[in-house]
């Protein structure tokens, strides 16, 4: 009989409440990545409508001119901006950039890798995503 490994599972993986803003960024990065992947597939379907000619193309584009379409596009803007800015932070971190230098640790052992540079990067990603979304909403609903 296979041994129960007592894994936390997906529920534990996506729980953002216990380990600070870094774990929130981890969750948002995954959600925005999956969301953008879904949008990419939908976008290919959308552009394939050009094969139906100009009338078919215009019919489909009208979907994006509705309130629901605008909200959908605003969410795409938020996901895109957050994923891009936070992705740059994560890529730099993966390269060992900005994660601090090894040193003898002193109590209370604040981890150098969770430093203010990365926290600023995370908060900047969220703020920029919010600003871009509000700008997008203003443009779309301001027409």
């Amino acid at each position: 009989m296979p041994q129960d490994e007592h894994k936390e599972g997906v529920g534990g993986m996506i729980n953002p409440t216990r380990y600070g803003i870094e774990r929130v960024a981890y969750l948002l990065m995954r959600l925005s990545g999956l969301g953008l992947l879904a949008y990419f597939v939908a976008h290919i379907y959308e552009t394939s409508n050009i094969l139906r000619g100009q009338v078919g193309w215009n019919e489909f584009l009208e979907l994006t001119q509705t309130t629901e379409g605008h909200i959908f596009l605003a969410i795409v803007i938020a996901m895109c901006v957050f994923h891009t800015v936070n992705g740059i932070r994560v890529m730099l971190g993966h390269g060992g950039v900005g994660v601090g230098k090894p040193a003898r640790p002193d109590y209370p052992y604040d981890p150098a890798s969770q430093n203010y540079r990365h926290k600023i990067g995370i908060y900047s990603s969220i703020v920029l995503a919010a600003v871009a979304t509000m700008y997008g909403l203003a443009v779309m609903f301001g027409e």
């Binding site: 870094e22 774990r23 993966h94 640790p105 052992y109 150098a112 969770q114």
Partner: peptide
């Protein structure tokens, strides 16, 4: 790079 490992380390290993 979620960093949770470093936050719970009781010896400052990071």
């Amino acid at each position: 790079f979620a960093g949770s490992c470093s936050q719970v380390c009781p010896k400052g290993v990071d």
